[in-house]
């Protein structure tokens, strides 16, 4: 590794997609979550634990805020004062938004969290030194740090329990950062299979674990640059553009009738997750 090599590869090293010289090709993985459908049941979160070897930290560590749920379901009440929540609550599944201009990436001193060509915010466990700067700079606070060494912790995966671990996913040791990966192991398997067959991954061929479990099918996932994908169609129908910090439709006086929005979009992380607003019946 020479410095000249470094310089040559520099533009490659820090790249955000899509830009003119490097469009997402052939994949840009993205999601949309309909919070009108989401019931808040938490099945997606459990699925993520099962798929991604997430440790159950136990009561005491949870009390200290050290829980590891990559997917958390937030329950919101209305902002104003009320006696009873007569319009119910709102549930919001929140996980890494796989930002296109991810604030977590630029600050990592060792480049352990990067942007992949297929539009993921990747996390390289072996590279991470545990500075936690990425978490400090993530506006959504969806990065989870291994405060303890869970693989060797007898309360987490004692004998037998450890046989449930998914061999496709690393078990993370102490001192490294982790977060939702969009189930990258499933994506890679699908991409490789498709490549072997000389095609790209078809719509519906790959599902994230959370999407797969979700009883209300609130989560859609797919390739945003594939015009056939549901996610593409949804983003388009909702007029949500990836590379902007304010959508054109939201500038309409009186607001738009479209439900698609991205959280903290104004900070310009360009999240890859679009939410669809909850709907409230006006007749009751």
């Amino acid at each position: 590794m020479s410095v000249s090599n470094l310089l040559e590869n520099w533009s490659q090293f820090r790249h955000f997609h899509p830009v003119d010289d490097k469009p997402h090709d052939p994949y840009k993985w993205a999601m949309s979550i309909d919070i009108d459908a989401c019931s808040g049941c938490n099945a997606c979160s459990v699925a993520c634990y099962a798929e991604n070897n997430i440790p159950v930290v136990g009561k005491e560590r949870f009390q200290h805020g050290q829980q590891m749920h990559w997917m958390r379901i937030e329950r919101y009440w209305p902002d104003h004062d009320f006696d009873f929540p007569e319009q119910g609550a709102e549930f919001l599944p929140m996980m890494c938004q796989q930002c296109e201009a991810a604030p977590c990436e630029t600050v990592c001193p060792v480049g352990a969290t990067n942007h992949t060509a297929d539009g993921l915010n990747s996390q390289i466990y072996n590279r991470c030194i545990g500075s936690r700067y990425c978490s400090a700079n993530c506006p959504f606070k969806v990065r989870y740090f291994n405060w303890y060494d869970y693989p060797t912790d007898e309360t987490v995966w004692p004998a037998e329990m450890n046989r449930q671990l998914n061999p496709d996913v690393s078990v993370r040791g102490k001192g490294v950062m982790e977060k939702c990966t969009f189930c990258v192991q499933r994506l890679r398997a699908a991409e490789v299979t498709a490549k072997g067959e000389g095609r790209i991954v078809r719509e519906g061929e790959v599902q994230t674990a959370c999407q797969q479990a979700c009883p209300t099918s609130a989560i859609s996932f797919g390739n945003l640059v594939d015009p056939e994908s549901r996610v593409h169609k949804q983003w388009q129908a909702q007029q949500v553009e990836m590379n902007v910090d304010e959508q054109e439709k939201d500038k309409e006086p009186g607001g738009s009738h479209l439900r698609g929005y991205r959280i903290l979009e104004e900070l310009r992380p360009y999240p890859s997750v679009m939410y669809l607003e909850r709907v409230r019946e006006s007749a009751i």
């Binding site: 329950r75 919101y76 902002d79 919001l92 009738h257 439900r259 959280i263 607003e277 709907v279 006006s282």
Partner: peptide, 20 residues
């Protein structure tokens, strides 16, 4: 306490504002 504190996080619209 689960209040969005005026931030645009969990949004909603009423049925007369949307075209499902």
């Amino acid at each position: 306490g689960g209040k969005p504190e005026q931030r645009r996080i969990a949004l909603s619209k009423s049925t007369d504002q949307v075209k499902l």
